[in-house]
């Protein structure tokens, strides 16, 4: 028997939550609650669930989370959440993570403009192509390339001293 939209939605949430939450963490950092971002994005989709095709919902959900994260960051009344995530919680690769490196990169990434950060997360964490990123962020491919390049150069500059000391 075919699954109902509700069932497909629930399954999609179950399947994609981990990556969606990681994306939200990467974009909002410590400036908002990533859990709230994901929950709100999912509820936005749920409200209009009958409009979407839930057989392959990955791209749709990713786009919704990125848009919600960017929307929240652009909202002026923004509180700072506790700096206990991410990287300070146990994670599947917890033992392998260099906490100092994570903290340094987090700090540097937090200083990037939000659209640079979003492009970087989608490219390097989600392994999306430039074309896919341009669709999610609703900009041109050339713009994506520029944001990625500038973001990476700014990060490299900010992390230069740390990287040299580490070596």
């Amino acid at each position: 028997m075919a699954e109902s939209t509700e069932e497909l939605f629930e399954r999609a949430v179950q399947t994609h939550s981990r990556r969606l939450l990681a994306i939200a963490r990467g974009i909002v950092g410590t400036r908002a609650s990533p859990e709230d971002v994901v929950q709100q994005a999912l509820m936005n989709l749920y409200q209009h669930r009958d409009r979407y095709d839930w057989r392959e919902p990955g791209g749709l959900m990713r786009r919704s989370v990125v848009n919600e994260a960017l929307r929240i960051l652009r909202t002026p009344r923004m509180g700072v959440v506790a700096d206990d995530h991410p990287g300070q919680q146990a994670s599947p690769v917890g033992g392998m993570i260099d906490a100092e490196t994570v903290a340094q990169v987090r700090k540097a990434i937090d200083m990037l403009p939000e659209h640079f950060r979003a492009a970087l997360v989608l490219c390097e964490y989600e392994q999306m192509s430039y074309v896919e990123i341009s669709e999610v962020l609703d900009v041109t491919v050339a713009q994506v390339k520029t944001w990625l390049h500038r973001g990476r150069r700014q990060l490299a500059e900010r992390l230069k001293e740390y990287m040299e000391n580490k070596e």
Binding site: E10, V13, Q14, S17, R18, L21, A22, I23, R25, G26, E35, V38, Q39, L42, M43, P86, G87, Q89, A90, S91, P92, V93, M96, I97, D98, T101, V102, V105, R106, I109, L120, V121, E124, Y125, L155, L159, M163
Partner: peptide, 24 residues
């Protein structure tokens, strides 16, 4: 270096369970 950071973004199972319960 950035990959190390991105790996740290992945939430653990209990965080996921809590999130999906909230969504439900």
């Amino acid at each position: 270096t950035r990959r190390t950071f991105f790996a740290s973004l992945e939430p653990d199972d209990s965080t996921i369970a809590k999130l999906t319960a909230q969504v439900r």
